[in-house]
Write a protein that binds this DNA or RNA. Structure first.
Length: 411
RNA sequence: GCGCCGGUCGAAUAGCGGCUAUUUCAGGAGACUGUAAAUCUCCCGCCUUCGGGCAUCGUUGGUUCGAGUCCAACCCGGCGCA
């Protein structure tokens, strides 16, 4: 993997560049489409490519459970089995330490939202109380994470070495060190402990990866796999800087920025990290984000992103437009005989009316998921691409201002 | 006309003497940030200062401390016999 910076955003940390992988180049900043189980839900790889996506990100834990990394490898690797010829990433399973652990059976999100007063804060917390009969499915120890399968209840242990071994078998171009994604509800003491543990896991991940690569690259057709280390530290400036310094000084090919954030503070938090990380290596902001997040993260030095929001929200009936998000089930769209957005060039908007797509969604026709996912991914992929172009043409500030003024998030 | 069933919030249902009338669907709104997710939450008779208040199980009476539930008559629907 090779990273090149083409242009920097003057006076800021942001940059446009390219990541060259054995399966092609990613022009950055870029949105990486999430295909957790080696499939972008509801879409064929051709559809994913046609809507403008450059790369996809799959998940180690999910592919380990099913079909199993041995089968992925025997089938020719991630690219081959899913018929995606472009660059790929795998996440390490570290996010599942959170989603199946502290967050399981609750309404806890890794992004904490601003609360207007303490009363609402308490209400929110009470809503977050774990549902009955839903004990956590992930338990963290120094050596790794014990997962209880959400499929059959079976126990599976992930150590940093195990995650790296599985990821090497799956064979994505870019993989991540095994980390612990913490909950925003955890206190600073815990965030510090988890961060330090993630640092130890990073060193172990790196060591195991080097061993495996030396071995694997002896075979003539082997393609090198890049390893990104993951920065943690929650919403605390001193922890984030410490983590970025520690992870940034290790011999990784690039970096992931993970964990929980205060939603309104995301640009600042990312700048703490990216000021510390070496400039010449790519930085991937894990699990972000919404349209407004990209501007803040990119101007503060992030190069790539992945997020389930566009596809999940598409399936759940929320669509992106330049004026904000809309709910496709709203009564007012039943007779909206025009595209979701008049000037959108996606396949869905070129061929269907919102009224028709809304009808498909309302009647739970499967095509609804495909058409809405195409629109949302096209919107997000092209938004990030537009930000890239604005950096290259020195119009970032104007583009940011005009987009955010129009994007009110109100119907 | 006689007999037997049955009428519960848009639909379908549960409840068969006990306080707050159940559930599913339909309908309305919202949430979702490295996917446990084609998922979840709330509303769905009227009023409300969001604490609650007042109604309501075909109609009208009755029995009872208490009735959707038991009794009577009537109205409607289905089936059977004439």
């Amino acid at each position: 993997m090779k990273f090149t910076i083409e242009k920097k955003l003057s006076g800021k940390l942001g940059r446009a560049g390219k990541i060259e992988t054995p399966h092609g180049t990613i022009n950055t900043p870029a949105f990486i489409v999430v295909g957790t189980k080696a499939t972008v839900k509801a879409l064929t790889p051709d559809q994913v490519k046609d809507l403008g996506a450059q790369a996809v990100l799959a998940n180690t834990y999910h592919l380990y459970l099913e079909p199993g990394e041995k089968i992925v490898k025997a089938g020719g690797g991630l690219h081959k089995i899913m018929n995606w010829s472009g660059p790929t990433f795998t996440d390490s399973g570290g996010f599942q330490a959170f989603s199946l652990g502290a967050a399981f059976g609750t309404t806890i999100s890794k992004l904490s939202k601003p609360q207007s007063n303490g009363f609402e804060e308490r209400e929110k917390m009470s809503e977050s109380v774990r549902s009955e009969g839903m004990p956590p499915l992930a338990k963290i120890t120094e050596d790794g994470v014990m997962f209880k399968s959400y499929r059959d209840g079976g126990e599976h242990f992930f150590s940093p070495e195990k995650s790296i071994e599985i990821q090497n078998s799956i064979g994505a171009d870019i993989i991540f060190a095994f980390d612990e994604c913490t909950s925003p509800t955890a206190d600073k003491q815990y965030q510090k402990e988890a961060m330090e543990r993630t640092h130890r896991w990073a060193a172990r991940s790196l060591a195991r990866h080097k061993e495996l690569q030396i071995e694997s690259l002896k075979s003539p057709n082997a393609k090198p796999i890049a390893l990104f280390g993951v920065v943690q530290g929650g919403r605390f400036e001193d922890l984030r800087k410490e983590s970025a310094h520690t992870i940034g000084s290790m011999d990784f090919d690039g970096f992931g920025i993970g964990g929980s954030f205060d939603k309104q503070d995301i640009g600042t938090a990312v700048s703490w990290v990216n000021e510390e990380l070496p400039e010449g290596k790519p930085r991937h902001l894990l699990g972000i984000g919404e349209p407004e997040d990209f501007f803040l993260a990119i101007e503060n030095g992030c190069d790539t992103f992945d997020c389930v929001a566009p596809t999940r929200q598409a399936r759940n009936g929320t669509l992106y437009t330049k004026a904000g998000k809309i709910h496709i089930d709203n009564t007012k769209y039943r007779e909206f005989f025009a595209p979701i957005e008049a000037d959108c060039t996606c396949y869905t908007c070129r061929n269907y009316t919102l009224a028709y797509v809304a009808y498909l969604a309302r009647t739970k026709e499967l095509l609804a998921h495909t058409l809405t996912s195409i629109h949302n991914l096209h919107f997000i992929v092209h938004l990030v691409e537009s930000i890239r172009q604005s950096i290259l043409s020195d119009t970032f500030e104007e583009f940011k201002k005009s987009f955010l003024e129009g994007y009110t998030k109100v119907d």
